[in-house]
Structures are given as structure tokens and as C-alpha cells.
Write a protein that binds this DNA or RNA. Structure first.
Length: 484
RNA sequence: GGCGCUAUCGUCUAGUGGCCCAGGACGUCGCCCUCUCAAGGCGAAAACACGGGUUCGACUCCCGUUAGCGCUACCA
């Protein structure tokens, strides 16, 4: 046992945004930690100077927090095993590389990128596995010393043992075996003095007492390198769990170009964090029964690595939409109210023009009809301003030559009521229809068109009672003038 | 090309040798409800990749084939 308790980490490289696959990895680590009473650590893997993106770390942390994933140790909050940013740990990697150099399980390589490139091309041409040819392993002591004193740039490579079998057990996949013959003498330390992922990852996981390495399946193939490194250092192996990949609809690894991959994209489109988290949790994990709607707290309680499956999962937006609807309807009216106000402001509609009581009525009327908060303005703009135009298809279907006359009668009837309630409008309409000797539908449909401009929505009398008598009459008169 | 992983309805999945002529959910379609649209209810179509074994019995175990994906950098 590496540690008495579970310690897991999410170790993204700060490339500018949080990938939904990254969110899923972070979530599973987080859930596993919470479920087992362990600690969830955030470590920033920024060892590639070429990929440095300004502000990426802050953005990553913000997005993680937006999703409700708070880490116990990491940048900003600190911890006993810091620093948690790899670019601040360069000295540590250097020390460890020196250790391997002394032990002879690593060696300096002075080969130029050009030579390596040419070598690889040649190998590929001959259908050989691209692999470092160990030229620098055969350097004499004198050549080595000369190269060093000449200040020739070098990298440090791992010396992979010949002809052994590298085995490890993966919690999700079971026993996995690779032949060392197949693993390349991986670069551990780059010529700029920065470590590669493989080195930094192993050193940090060990030093930070990580008990379980939970990461994407794309790392499975390089795990033998890591296992060999642990052995070279004489360290105990953590547990490994390689998560199935998230896939595009065409089943390739989830990527841009085929849709949104940034968590921020989904947030900005109006998805609730509850829905996105729930959705991503279900990609590769299930509770073993038929429940599907989970809050983060419920997930923490239910999650286990044993129930994570092995095969990749397509990111299916349809189901995400449905989950958003499910979670939206689980929000309280008050929560929806404040989201609606924020949305109205975003749409340049001053929310203070509408009393809370009014907005709450709109929410009650529309709740079952929207999957997103933006649906309130998209599907029922008439609650926020009078219709600017009338749907021609509805006019065609519902507006008869006599409709204007009927609505005139109706408007007359409405105007005689004082402080009418929903039922009063209904009664008035029925009475008007009766005296006109027509079916209710002859009034209902044109009235809906007049007040909303469209042919669908909540119950007509709900709409009318929400917008009120004066406004209803105004809209009727306006429709009489404007339609046909 | 090599190595590795994976393989149940279109999609997410349940299923750990008999309970499965395979269950749920999204989506699709139909019906009911109904002033419209949703929601809701009911129902339908829809899958064990293929071939060998093992076994009294395979979706479940083993082998092979095929397919998909991943990795194969001084990226992570």
C-alpha cells in the first residue's frame, strides 16, 4: 500500500480549455475520492513550453469549479505535496534523472532531431518498428565525456531492459502484458531541461503518494514505460484504471471539428452543470440498476470503479438535451427565476420591467415545454413583448374571414370584465362563441394567434391571464388591423 | 506496418452459464389525453459482429477471424 487512504489526481495539461473527456476523467477521479473518503488532487502538467497558453490554468480551475469539482490539493489551495505545477518542479525531475543515470537505467543521448527523424523514416521504409537505435548507449566513456565538456545538447533516455515481459493489472481491463522489446528507449528529460510526461508523471505520482492512477485509455499503451520507470526507481506501483474513450458519432476519438468538445462551449450554450455532469458520468459508468438521473451528491455515493465499462462511448447530444430538461425541471422556481433574469439581461431585455410574480407565472406556464432556460424567450417571446409578426402557416390554417369580427366581439366581452381571472376569460369566450353560434375553436385559435403570433404554447387562458386584460385587448385590436 | 484495447437495439447501457426467443433509457413511429405545442400515459419497430470450440446448456468461458479505436514524438 502506497498510502493508507485513497489519493487520486486529475493531471491536465493547460491547453486553453477543459475538454469534456477531461471533465469525465476529472469527475471519475473526484467521485472515486469522495466515495472512498480519499483526496482529490489537481496537478498541472505544463512541461511542454511550446504549448503554453496564457490564462489556461485559471480557466481550467474555473471550469472545474463551475462543474462542482473542487480539489483538495492543488494550485491556489496548496497541500503537503506541492508544488502542484510541474514547471515549478524542474529541480525535482533533474535530481531523479541523475539518480537513474547513476544506476545506469538511463543514459544521455546526443542524437540530433534530424538524425532521429531520418532514422525513423528509414525504419518505416523497411517496415520496422520506429524505435531509438541506441547509438548513444554505445558511446565510450571518452566520447561521452567529450560530448559533455563540449556542451553538446542532450536528452536523457530510459534504458529499457531487453526481452522481459512487462505486466500490470488494470482495475478496469484486468491483466495487461507487453514485451519490453516493444517499448522504446523513451526520452525522460528533454534537451531544454524539462521532463517528458512519462518521467514527470511517475515521479510526481510517487512523490504525491497517488494510490490510483485513473486516466483515459489513450495512456494504456504507454503504461509499460511507466511501470518500467517505477521499477527503475525501486518504487511501488500504484493501481491503474484506464477509462474508456469518449467518441465522436463516427466512433473516432472525440475531437473538435465534429462538434463542441470544450466544457465551456456547453456551459455557454445553456446546459446546466447538473446535466453535463450527469451525462458524462453515464458515459462509461452505470449504477447497475435502471436509474439515470443523478445529482453530484448521489454520484459520489454510488460511484465505483468496478462498474466502469471497457468500451468507448459516443457523446450523444440528444440524450444530453433530455438530461438537461430533466435537471431543469428539478430546479426550484426560485432557481429558474434567477437563471431566467440572467438570461433576459443577456438578451438585452431588462428583467426589472417584469415583476418576479409575473416571471414566476411564465415559468409555471412554460416549465414543461422548455429544455433550456433560453427556451423561455425562444419558445414564448410573447411574454416579453407583443408579437411583431404572425406565423403565416397559422394564419392560413386558423384565420377565417370572420375571425376579425369574432375577435372584436370577444374584445368587447373582455373589456367589460373587472379584474378577470383565468376562468373568467374562459367563460367570456364560451359565452361569446355561443351568442355567435360558433364553436369555441373559432375564437380560441385566432385569439392565440393574436396574442402570441404563433400556433403553439401553454394553455391559451394561461397566456391571456398572464399578460392581462389590457394587453390582451391591445393585441386583439392590433391583430385585427394587421392580419390580412 | 507493429503493439495494445474493445465488440449487446441508430446511441448510452443491463446482463458475470440456465431467470434472456435479451431488460431500461435517449431518439424514431403510432395511439390516448387535448384549444395548440409540450409534458404525461400506453404501445411498436430496433441488438447479442462472424466462425470454431468447452458444456447437458452459451450474450455470458476459450481460440480464431473481422471490424473499430488507441498508441507508435525532445506532445500530453
Amino acid at each position: 500500500m502506497i498510502s493508507d487512504s485513497v489519493r487520486v489526481r486529475f493531471a491536465p495539461s493547460p491547453t486553453g480549455f477543459l475538454h469534456v473527456g477531461g471533465l469525465r476523467t476529472a469527475l471519475f477521479n473526484f467521485l472515486f475520492a469522495r466515495n472512498t473518503g480519499g483526496r482529490f488532487i489537481l496537478r498541472i502538467e505544463d512541461t511542454d513550453r511550446a504549448r503554453y497558453v496564457e490564462g489556461a490554468v485559471e480557466n481550467l480551475i474555473n471550469t472545474l469549479h463551475w462543474a462542482g469539482l473542487y480539489y483538495d490539493e492543488g494550485p491556489l489551495v496548496g497541500g503537503d505535496f506541492g508544488p502542484y505545477v510541474q514547471s515549478e518542479r524542474i529541480g525535482i525531475y533533474k535530481q531523479h534523472v541523475d539518480l537513474l543515470l547513476e544506476k545506469g537505467t538511463a543514459y544521455r543521448c546526443f542524437c540530433t532531431p534530424d538524425r532521429l527523424e531520418a532514422m525513423r523514416k528509414e525504419q518505416e521504409k523497411n517496415k520496422l518498428q520506429p524505435k531509438y537505435d541506441r547509438t548513444c548507449l554505445r558511446l565510450s566513456a571518452k566520447e561521452l565525456a567529450d560530448n559533455i565538456s563540449a556542451g553538446k545538447p542532450f536528452v536523457v533516455r530510459m534504458k529499457v531492459p531487453d526481452d522481459i515481459s512487462v505486466k500490470f493489472s488494470d482495475i478496469i481491463r484486468g491483466d495487461v502484458e507487453f514485451l519490453s522489446e516493444r517499448v522504446d528507449d523513451q526520452v525522460l528529460l528533454k534537451s531544454d531541461g524539462f521532463p517528458t510526461y512519462h518521467l514527470a508523471n511517475v515521479v510526481d505520482d510517487h512523490l504525491m503518494k497517488i494510490s490510483h492512477v485513473i486516466r483515459g485509455e489513450e495512456w494504456l499503451s504507454s503504461t509499460p514505460k511507466h511501470v518500467l520507470l517505477y521499477k527503475a526507481f525501486g518504487w511501488e506501483l500504484p493501481e491503474f484504471a484506464h477509462l474508456p474513450l469518449l467518441l465522436n458519432p463516427d466512433r473516432s476519438k472525440l475531437s473538435k471539428r465534429q462538434g463542441d468538445v470544450a466544457v465551456e462551449d456547453y456551459r455557454d450554450k445553456g446546459y446546466l452543470k447538473e446535466a453535463l455532469v450527469n451525462f458524462v458520468a453515464l458515459l462509461g459508468w452505470n449504477p447497475g440498476d435502471e436509474r439515470e438521473i443523478f445529482s453530484l451528491a448521489e454520484l459520489e455515493k454510488e460511484f465505483s470503479l468496478e462498474k466502469v465499462n471497457k468500451s468507448g462511448a459516443v457523446f450523444n447530444v440528444e440524450k444530453l438535451n433530455w438530461l438537461n430538461f430533466q435537471h431543469l425541471r428539478r430546479q426550484t422556481d426560485g432557481e429558474v427565476l434567477s437563471m431566467l433574469k440572467a438570461h433576459l439581461s443577456k438578451m438585452s431585455i431588462d428583467p426589472s420591467k417584469f415583476p418576479d410574480r409575473y416571471l414566476l407565472e411564465v415559468i409555471t406556464a412554460m416549465r414543461e415545454r422548455v429544455s433550456f432556460v433560453k427556451g423561455f424567450t425562444e419558445k414564448s417571446p410573447y411574454f416579453f413583448s407583443p408579437p411583431e409578426e404572425y406565423d403565416p402557416a397559422v394564419i392560413n390554417k386558423r384565420w377565417k374571414p370572420q375571425s376579425a369580427e369574432y375577435l372584436g366581439e370577444l374584445s368587447e366581452a373582455f373589456s367589460k370584465m373587472s379584474d378577470p381571472q383565468k376562468g373568467d376569460y374562459e367563460d367570456a369566450l364560451h359565452r361569446t362563441a355561443e351568442s355567435l353560434k360558433v364553436g369555441n375553436g373559432e375564437l380560441i385559435h385566432p385569439l392565440r394567434l393574436a396574442v402570441s403570433g404563433m400556433g403553439e404554447g401553454p394553455g391559451l387562458f394561461d397566456i391571456v391571464s398572464i399578460i392581462g386584460k389590457e394587453e390582451t385587448i391591445r393585441r386583439i385590436n392590433s391583430a385585427i388591423e394587421r392580419i390580412k
